[in-house]
Design a protein around this nucleic acid. Structure first.
Lengths: 133, 133
DNA sequence: CCCGGATGGTTACCATTCTTCACTATAGAG
DNA sequence: CTCTATAGTGAAGAATGGTAACCATCCGGG
């Protein structure tokens, strides 16, 4: 993905933000911070850069004067839909050759692994929290 | 992995370098650059930091006076084997619950996906090379 | 109504990772 | 012995992300 992204003159993080914005429509930077799993401070920098590139605008929030709504420009919307098409094409070329039953059991296996990984991460996160205070 | 790594007072990149060094034994920085898929210049910085932490030493290459051999200290070796144990334990907890046949077909499916992904990457890499000159 | 705590965003500062370009020193082929 | 390729580094900078301090605004309980 990084290759295709760089070809469009974007960095991975900025693209990730555009992608989320494409999924959710205009949202506050807090929402973006949560979606991207970064701090609100980091969102500020990414939005600054994208505003500078004319891919995003900051609009005032209609009811909360503290917040800003980040919105895709039409240029960015075209770009995001191009990314989405590329993503779907890649996914198809990776998984289409698998037989249906083969794909299903593969997906089930992967689901199990992910569940166990999440469990493990939650457990170790609790441990480090207990180690701090 | 990043969590477990930080708990040992290491950064991800530096740990990756130690890991590779653990797999290969003493090697030149060129070899490390290739293994880590970064430029030789970046290796210099990582090795500098690890020398500062007493985890690695720079030894002169026996036959090539331009090159240096990067070597793990005993402290780093203990640390790497601890990482390896953690890695194996995690892998077991993720995959052990799968039945043998289930695991086999999962692994086969994953292999296929990876092969197709590599093919795709190679193709797009050629495209961007053709676009440059 | 208003006061105090919570929330949204930003300024300032720093660490990490990695890159490109220029340069030195050594190897090795012809 | 010269010419080129290779190993490593200095300088400068881009991108990503974090913490701490701070301001403006929101909102609920007195």
């Amino acid at each position: 993905m990084t290759q295709a992204i760089a070809a469009l003159g974007l960095t991975p993080s900025r693209t990730h933000l555009l992608w989320e914005l494409g999924q959710r429509g205009p949202v506050t930077q807090q929402v973006l911070a949560t979606a991207l799993k970064i701090t609100p401070r980091a969102v500020t920098g990414l939005v600054d850069a994208l505003v500078g590139s004319g891919l995003v605008t900051r609009e005032p929030h209609p009811t909360d004067r503290r917040a800003t709504l980040v919105t895709l420009t039409s240029r960015a919307e075209a770009l995001v839909s191009q990314l989405k098409r590329g993503h779907e094409a890649l996914a198809r070329s990776l998984f289409a050759p698998m037989a249906r039953t083969e794909f299903d059991s593969f997906a089930r296996g992967l689901d199990g692994v992910i569940v166990r990984l999440r469990t493990h991460l939650a457990a170790t996160a609790l441990e480090s929290q207990r180690a701090k205070p």
